[in-house]
Design a protein around this nucleic acid. Structure first.
Lengths: 346, 346
DNA sequence: AAAATTTCCGCAATCGTTTGCGGTTACGTT
DNA sequence: AACGTAACCGCAAACGATTGCGGAAATTTT
């Protein structure tokens, strides 16, 4: 059962020629006669020979493998990113090794070490929420292994980065609410120690300022999960009955809030319009469908891996590190369609 | 910049001892004196030495890596499976190499080949919809590399398998509709050349039979996607106005149908009750929330990888292959709650 | 016919690690 | 003093592939 994997050594022995000849024959080296080449190739095919990538990698000290460390693969955003990474990596001849940190710092450290041991050619990282220390990443740069951070970047380490324009997206969302006539716009925000939380809050504020709407800190609620919304949103809406627009820091929160608004008997968007952030598939199936800011996970993945492979294959070039910003995009749906613009199409 | 990776050879040279001593010192071999061990370990730590897994793997011809071939990582079901795989693999000291077939046969073949080259210790596979030929998988068995199929299994190859009980789940779903009083239950079905399509259709039929409801082929519609539903569902519901219950082959279809029903002005569940299959997070956020059959992706992943690792680590044991069936589970939500049982809890 | 090419192929080192076996010391025993 | 025996450590082969260099045979050139 345990079939010994076929090697060039086997082929050499059977054909009564040397190992090097077999190797060269398979590579179409000009030194080898046509006759020998045909013999070797035929036998190799007959025996289902597959070159041992381990041996190759060891010799070249290159694995053609890219490591990925992400918080959680089940989040639609991250699996979109991976999908993008995988597609490009595949086209460029790289394998992908995926590790989940599960938002745990300890596990992130171990993941990093595993990738180091396996001598990946480069690493793509989106850091865990609990990670505050970044020494485990410096090992990569010490060993000359390029890194690219995406979405949740590490501000302390100079590398290439790919991020969404959180501030700009939040601005778009808030501006949209203003333009459709909302006067009292609330913001359901992420913790301000996260860059995402900062950026989206800043965009919200800039939009208010630009349209000369007085910023009211009472309209900002620290709430960025589904569960959090079910805890706090109803009370918040009761306390602030004049709120007629909500910009939520992510779709999950927005959707939960919508469900609560529905339950309170208020109408969306007539009474309260709402915008999310993320554009997962969920935004399509709520009632009403949710206006949201596109967070192009797939594109972030492709951009990140392209940057990385470029670094890998041009290690000499000391191009300065760049930060690629994926431009935001507003997707308007019924949750902000006060004028019934969209229903005309149906 | 391009730092040479530290090897035991470097350590040996610096300390003026032999390579083998270094190797043994790091492994706590009893032949080595405490003094040497301390010296070696200290230096290794100081130099950030990481053992080269490539060399190790080559020598042991074992990579501690598991290959995964799945159709598409963005589907919630598959990313749940991967999450389960990753968690268990991590605990047991294995890495995971993920490949997407993107439902393409050609790509699946190339993925399989890549995993072969990289000498993975075992493979987890859910086959692409377009795959009709299975020779590329036989290479694994030829080389003695264990495989486990999950969800979309390959009936032609004898291996371990992990599947959901489609027939049983469909029976539960249909029985539930019957029990809440539906008399004319439609089935939105997947193509019958897929095992999933067959199983779920069979469960539907068995439930009808058991409760002495006449099977009406006109109530079975070949429709298993969101787009398909938007194409055909409205017409179907018009043609069959007496339908008061629907069992859809997956959640996506069910959700799209719900949106259509809503638009037609009918009430869920009063006019039409509906059950899906899959229990993605989507089922929670529709209005009303969707009753559905749990398809435990995470559990399927953990079971599959456990079976695989068992095979890997007991290659001698020729246990006969087993097929693990994950039992179905009905999750009742408002889309079938005619009696307002659930709202009592709110 | 001798010399110069060309054609084709093999030797051996290399990548980094493990490990069986053998070789040095130093110590204790008689 | 001679021997036995630990206690430590190094040599070298092995994993599978690539590749510079050198060498033998065949062919051409002079």
């Amino acid at each position: 059962m345990k079939a010994h994997q076929v090697t060039i050594k086997d082929i050499a022995k059977i054909l009564g020629i040397s190992i090097s000849t077999v190797s060269r024959a398979l590579k179409n080296h000009p030194d080898i006669s046509e006759e020998t080449k045909v013999q070797v190739k035929d036998l190799a095919h007959k025996l289902n020979y597959e070159p041992n990538a381990l041996a190759l990698n060891l010799r070249r000290s290159k694995t053609n493998t890219i490591g990925v460390i992400i918080p959680e693969i089940i989040h639609h955003f991250f699996s979109s990113v991976i999908s993008g990474i995988e597609d490009v990596a595949y086209d460029m001849g790289y394998n992908v090794m995926i590790c989940q940190s599960n938002e745990s710092y300890e596990r992130e450290v171990i993941n990093a070490q595993a990738l180091l041991c396996n001598r990946v050619d480069g690493v793509l990282i989106s850091i865990a929420k609990t990670t505050l220390d970044f020494d485990h990443f410096r090992h990569f740069t010490n060993q000359g292994i390029p890194m690219v951070f995406f979405d949740r970047i590490c501000p302390d380490i100079m590398t290439d980065r790919v991020i969404t324009n959180d501030e700009g997206g939040a601005f778009l969302a808030t501006e949209h609410l203003i333009k459709i006539g909302c006067k009292h716009i609330a913001h359901f925000a992420a913790p301000q120690h996260l860059l995402i939380g900062q950026g989206r809050f800043a965009g919200y504020q800039r939009a208010l300022k630009q349209y000369q709407i007085q910023f009211d800190p009472r309209l900002v609620l620290n709430c960025n999960t589904r569960d959090g919304a079910f805890e706090k949103a109803a009370q918040f809406l009761n306390d602030n009955p004049d709120v007629d627009g909500i910009f939520a820091v992510n779709d999950n929160t927005a959707i939960a809030v919508m469900q609560i608004i529905n339950k309170l008997g208020k109408k969306i968007p007539e009474d309260i319009a709402i915008v999310g952030f993320g554009d997962g598939p969920d935004a399509l199936i709520t009632s009403p469908p949710l206006t949201t800011i596109e967070q192009k996970g797939y594109d972030i993945g492709t951009e990140a891996v392209k940057l990385l492979i470029h670094r890998i294959e041009n290690e000499s070039s000391s191009d300065s590190f760049q930060t690629k910003v994926i431009p935001p995009n507003l997707i308007m749906r019924e949750s902000t369609d006060k004028e019934n613009v969209l229903s005309a199409n149906v």
